[in-house]
Design a protein around this nucleic acid. Structure first.
Lengths: 225, 225
DNA sequence: CTTCTATAATTAGAATTTTCATGGCACTAT
DNA sequence: ATAGTGCCATGAAAATTCTAATTATAGAAG
């Protein structure tokens, strides 16, 4: 279950991220209009949390754009100004829900849950590539019918790679998604190398039919062999 | 067994809470439409006591909404105005029972008990995993044909783990279901560790064929051995 | 085409940090 | 008083990051 949070206030963003990550959602973030737009262009999200006031544009504008691209499903508008006007505008533009700030984190969780459930009744879907099967609900990985245990970061890395199929995954994307706020300014990606190594080992040890291939200078790509 | 009381009159609310807590129910409360809606979005309740007159909306409206979400089971409407009209409306909307104010607390207890028993698979049935058998109605646990006594929290933990079979249970989920809103920001999960410790001890002392396995960094999982 | 160079990636193992288990104690509500 | 529960201190275990040495890669220079 993949969620994009678009929010420019760092503290707020972090709270939201933590709340949702605790519930095992895959969270990605964007702090401005532009990054949000590009991310949505590349990935599909099950739910998008959209702050209206962004440094480089208006959230409603973005929503309009998304609707045109057919990517505007599962959008929850988050806004400081609970003006009836904005609310109506947002819902008219096709937002699925409207959440006025300030709100309790439980409230956030509730709204997201509602949207996600409404959109997909497949709480129990398995992700399968090659002979690798992931069950997100139990956080378990099966390779060749056998269960293989991955610890947290390893699992996150694998899941992220797999959910991007054979698309190229940049190291920054990987870092941002799996490590979140921990990255300061891409000083070094050593911690990624470590985890990639472990994941690869576990994959080959279990003779998986997928492998993680490095793309020099950019990142990694999944390869089905 | 988790119950939500939706009631805006503080004194009444307190009375109801005390009555039901005495009977070992896990009680949560909401004083208005909005918080009620939020809570139901996040948690699952075995029974919902719904006052019709709320400060920020009509209880029947909430019921309608719940039914649409598929969360409208086990609802008992509590209302001061015993108008035939409201009663019929409520039951037509799919409420399971209707309790006119004023009522005796014993009456409340009886109705709740009836609903809980009627609707749940746990009402009369036994839950069995490995050599562990739980009778939810009497809150008793049998392991290897022998009765083992679990304290309230211990029992709740065990029941929640078992009702999730071998699914992964995150610590937040456990906290929410067993401790309810007692925890605000879950800075530490020490209270979970304590109870897990006790439950494990009782399980192994009685040579149960199930065990609670920690999933590092995430939560717990039940294992049948 | 080959060699060179700077940068990137891999790897193993050490160091650190996080998470979990456990026993005992203190508080609370019977 | 007594049992249940949460809190704390401690230690153990596991996961993650860091370090440093090694190898691979792309592109420039010869």
């Amino acid at each position: 279950m993949k969620i994009l949070i678009i929010e420019d206030e760092p503290q707020m963003l972090e709270n939201m991220r933590q709340t949702l990550e605790r519930e095992q959602y895959m969270v990605e973030t964007a702090a401005d209009f532009k990054t949000a737009s590009t991310k949505i262009g590349v990935y599909d999200y099950d739910c998008i949390l959209l702050d209206i006031t962004l440094p480089d544009g208006n959230g409603l504008e973005l929503l309009k754009q998304l609707k045109q691209q057919g990517k505007g499903d599962g959008v929850i508008i988050v806004s400081a100004k609970d003006s009836l006007d904005d609310r109506i505008k947002g819902l008219n533009l096709g937002a699925d829900d409207y959440l006025p700030k300030p709100f309790h984190m439980a409230e956030l969780h509730a709204r997201v849950k509602a949207i996600v459930r409404r959109r997909s009744f497949d709480g129990n879907k398995l992700i399968e590539i090659g002979n690798v099967i992931i069950n997100p609900e139990s956080r378990s990985v099966h390779i060749n019918e056998k269960e293989v245990t991955f610890n947290r970061k390893e699992y996150d890395v694998l899941l992220y790679m797999i959910s991007n199929k054979t698309r190229l995954v940049t190291k920054t994307a990987l870092a941002e998604h799996v490590w979140g706020d921990h990255i300061d300014q891409a000083d070094s990606f050593d911690f990624i190398y470590s985890q990639i190594k472990n994941v690869r080992k576990k994959l080959t040890d279990a003779t998986a039919t997928i492998e993680i291939e490095a793309v020099y200078g950019v990142g990694y790509k999944l390869q089905v062999v």
